[in-house]
Structures are given as C-alpha cells and as structure tokens.
Design a protein around this nucleic acid. Sequence first.
DNA 1: ATACTCTATGCAATCGATTGCATGACGATA
DNA 2: TATCGTCATGCAATCGATTGCATAGAGTAT
Lengths: 338, 338
Amino acid sequence: MHKKRTGIHDVAEAAGVHPSTVSRVLNPRTRGLVSQAVAERVEALAGKLGYSADPVASGLRTRRSATVGVLIPDIANPVFPLILRGIEATLGEAGYTAIIANTDNDTARAGAALARLAARRIDGAILATATRRDPLIAQCRSFGLPTVLVNRAADSGKVSAVIVDDRAGIALAVEHLFALGHRSIGHVGGPGNISTGQARRAGFLAAIKAHGLAPPAVAMAESYSIAAGERACAQLLGMKRHISAIVAANDLLALGCYDELKRRGLACPREVSVTGFNDMAFADRFDPPLTSVRIPHRLMGAEAARLLLAQIANPRAPIQEIKLLPELAVRGSTARRK
Amino acid sequence: MHKKRTGIHDVAEAAGVHPSTVSRVLNPRTRGLVSQAVAERVEALAGKLGYSADPVASGLRTRRSATVGVLIPDIANPVFPLILRGIEATLGEAGYTAIIANTDNDTARAGAALARLAARRIDGAILATATRRDPLIAQCRSFGLPTVLVNRAADSGKVSAVIVDDRAGIALAVEHLFALGHRSIGHVGGPGNISTGQARRAGFLAAIKAHGLAPPAVAMAESYSIAAGERACAQLLGMKRHISAIVAANDLLALGCYDELKRRGLACPREVSVTGFNDMAFADRFDPPLTSVRIPHRLMGAEAARLLLAQIANPRAPIQEIKLLPELAVRGSTARRK
DNA sequence: ATACTCTATGCAATCGATTGCATGACGATA
DNA sequence: TATCGTCATGCAATCGATTGCATAGAGTAT
C-alpha cells in the first residue's frame, strides 16, 4: 500500500557509499568533491530508484525551502491571477515554488499569513498588498526575508519594487480624453495610503495642468472596490456640474462609476466617458467595453520574481525599483465629446 | 539583527524542565500526561517567550504539516477564486493552510505539482482539476493522500466529491427558456472528459425531452474557454437553422457564443438567447448581462474542506458525494422569443 | 517494612538530509 | 624511502521537534 519513499540512505546503500557522498553528488555545489566514477554511479542509481530529496528534511538542515511566499490582497480581483502567472513561471524555471496567501485586504490577516509563511521557511516574499507605509515590510526585514513589492510601491524606498509608471499611465488616459475633445475631466482616485492611489492622483493633476485645463475635480475612494467607486463618483458628480469624462484609478472603480452614472441616467460614453486602470480580464466584455490603461501583468510578475531570486542569491543585492510602461487599451467607454 | 527564534529548548530551559515535557504540554493530545502545575508554568513561559513550534521540524518527525494542497485548473477563471475562499476559510478555522497550485489545464503540470506538494508532506489534496478518469486520483491514492474533488467529479466514485447538481442546473436554464417561449434550443457543451461537460449535456437532453421538444442540437467544445465556445457555437448554428436559444455549459463558453453570434450579426438576446453556467464574477457586467446558473461557490469550497478534514482525521471515513443545488440568475442575455 | 502500582518526567532515538572535520590512499617530491 | 600534499570518502554532529521506553518517587496494599 504505502510505498515507502526511497531516501538518501537507500541510494547510498545501493551504490555502496556513505549517504553523505550521495548528498554531495546530488548537490551541484558539492558535486565537484566527488570522483567522476562514483558520481555517475550514484546519479544513475538515484534516477533508477526515483530518488528525490525530502524538502522538509533538507529544509530543516539548510534553513531553505526553495519556496517563496506571495501575498495577494484579493485573489478574486482578476488582475492578480495574471501577475501570479508571471511570478510562477519565473520562479518555476529556477526550481522555486510560490505559496500564495490571500489577505482579503486585511492588514492583520496579512501579518498572520506572513508569519505562517516565515515559519515554513520561505526564502523570500513578494507582496502585492503593500500600502505606502506598510508594517509588513518591517516584519519582513525583521525576519531577514528578501522581499520585493509588486504593483504597489512603498514610500520608504527601502525595498525593491516592480510597478507600473502610474503617472505615465494616467497621462495616456488624459491625453486620450483630451484628444476626444474633453475639457472638464474628473478623477475618481484610489486609496491615499496605497502608492497607486497617490501616484495616479498626482499624475492626473499633472496631466490636467500640462494641458492647461480648468482646475480639476477629484474624489478619492476609500478602497479599490466597485462600491467605493460608486460613492466617489457620486461625490465627484456632486461637486461640479459639467464633467464630461472620468479617469478612474482602477477598473473596479470605473465599474462603480458605471453604476453611479446609470443611476443618474447619464449614458456612458454618450454623456460621460470613463477610463479605468489595469485592463483586468474581461474589461473588454463590460457594457460598455472599458477603455483602460493596460499594464504588463505577466512581465510585472516575472520581473518581481527575477528581482527576488537575485536577492535570495545575494542578500546584499542593490535595491531596485523597476517601472514598467503601460499602454492604453481604447474601447467603448470613451467617446468624442458631444 | 537576526532575532534567533525561540525553540522548544529555550522554553524548557526557562521552565527548568526537559524539552520533551514542553512538547507534551503544547500538544493537546499529550497534555494530560503532565502535571497541572508544570503544564501551567510551561504554557505561561511559552507565551511569554513567543514560542511556536517550528512546522518544518515537527513535520519531519510527525509526517504531518497542517497543510493541504489545492489544484486549480486555471486561477484566472473567476470561478475558482470564489471556491478557494470557502476552502481557505474552513481550513483556516481548523489551523490548516491551503497551498494553491495552478495547473493551466495541463495534466503533466498537474502531476508534477501534486508530486511537489506530496513531497512537502501535505496532509491532503483538494482537486478542482479532475477529469472523469483522472490519473491524478490514482496518484493521490498511491501517496496515501486523503483527497476530495470539488466542482468536478470522477466516474469511478471512489473518491469524495463536492459538486453541483449539474442536471438540475441545466434543467433550470431550459425551464426558463421554455417559459420564455423558446422551442428550438441548442447546447454548447463542455469537454466530454470532464464530469460537468458530460452531466450538463445529459441534463440538457433530459430536460429537452421532458418538455417534449424537437430533437435537440448539441455541439461540444473541446475545452472550457471562450475560443472553444465560439467554435462550438459556429458548429451549432451551422447544424440547424432556427435555434432561438443556446444553453452553454459554462460562462466562458457563453461568452464564446456572444462572439460568434455577433460575428454572424445575430443580436443577443433579441434573436438568440444565451445562458451560462457558474455565474462567475462580473457575469452581471457583460454585454448583455449573462443569465447563468449560479452555483454556491463558497459553500462548495467549504464543504470540500470539511470532507477533507474529516478524512484526514479518520482515513477510513466513508466516501461521500455531496451535490449542492444551483439557482438561476436571470439577466439580460435571455428574452422572450419573438 | 516490603512489594507493587502509578504518575510525572527525563533520556535518547528518530525523522532525512547536510556539512565540518577526520582519515586513508595515492602520487609526487626530495 | 621518507615526507608531504591532495583528493575522495566516511564519520558524526546538527537542524528542532516528537515519542517509546526507562526510572525516580509518591502512594497504597499486605
């Protein structure tokens, strides 16, 4: 019934050598210490017996696990699975496995998840959950854990991060709307304590100014959710009469705008144009299809994994912030101003 | 810098007892072996020193890890994150952690992922990837791994599963279309090697028959994807002229139908009604909003976790197949027949 | 007082691999 | 031939907890 796993001991016995020799053969770093002949014999036998090292035992001794923790704020938000793909692909190539933890946007839960992962000896962490001043980052440092942020950066700049050029992304959206004749553009911003919320807002203000437009209307949502977007949109529309276009900081917020506009009987895009950010899966299926700033999800994940692996290999690797360039996916939610 | 973790040894020393005593105190099962007084002292000290057992070391000895592997065919399909939520919540309450592995619908990848997880000593597996005759199930058994299927069942019936009553779900859809006056209804089916594809097809045929309708048109998609749905829909429309409604086996297939209908200039729902299955996130946002069979995602995940925990606690627990009842979410993709 | 049980705790092996140190064999050099 | 160095391999400690067995001491029965 239970086929007992073949251990290093079995291989050693079969090859007539000591377990430590087998260990050395199978570890590329120590492979050179063993004679060619023995090494080949051991390798052949290991293959034949289907041996593979027990990661638990070896992790106990080496304090490493070939495992990386990934903290996701909300796995149901279709942006993150795409980023995950990139992370998993790159980690996989290097023989690492990602362990995903979902935090439901809850700081306490995130801390607990990180502690659990650290106890399991993850070799590094990728945080997609970071707020601008995030205690999680200090927690990682106190664990001595190589860490990379993805999608969201931290103010401190003391951690590597792979993000999108938020200002450039928003500029694309404003540019596009301006070209369509819009002159009164509002912004439904993201949470101020998250880097993307802050940077996109700043980018919006800068872009508006660059086009010499009227002092802009801005309403900040308290979270990246449809409901918060709806509320912020209501606030925005209450402030100023003639907003003809809304730049939302995120696709979910844009969906909230859809809802609020509909509630007020304002047609999108005929009366009000809307843009999103992230170009999440199915954004092209919405009604109307959402014009959105497209970010290179997969690449972002891959780069984050790459940085992390470098940091694991060399803990003194320099801190880097990689900013990727977004594009604009133009769809049906934006139209020429009447 | 590196605060060295407090080990069982430190606690023992502080309490003036042997490490084994500490271990006994902290393990509820052996707690009774230790005198009240010592137990309390040890417990207090463990708390004060912030001790928690190293799961790697204890896993090595006990061959258990308080960890469960979850195989997901496609994490980017918004159905699965919802199921995951239920799984994680229930596992979490019991002190277990889910380790998620994404297989991208690839059998080989799934096998490799399972092997990796097994090597990490997962205590059980939840498979959302099962095909009707899945070698993965045998693999789990050969590992002696408690296993539960979720969302998809296996033909053999030798493994517990939590699924939706597919036939009942399809019956709801057909019922609804019938009530709207449709008499010529086609089916875009799912892959025949997956239980849902097979059961929904059977359910469709049964429901059509029950309403005494014309011999039905059916086209099977080779995978649960938009592209496959589009192709199957094309095939379906090629077969019969006057299909006024399509029951798709899955929301992605329904989206494929949207595309094919649009390509042919057929308006949905004015000329052809479409129903989906799963009621995935954002289905209400599609154009038109998709009428879909809603499954209790969260409950499904929770029940699967519950069954698995029971099986872990008692490996001889009986095999169960839990069938949950779906509802119909009626939206804009279905309309009265002209 | 002796034998006997029982309880609480310590001892040491164990899980499966890794790794610093020791040692033996062999060849080279003087 | 003696000495030394090098290379290949074995030995045993270690990672941190768990657990079967041993034992000291308290308590009870005879």
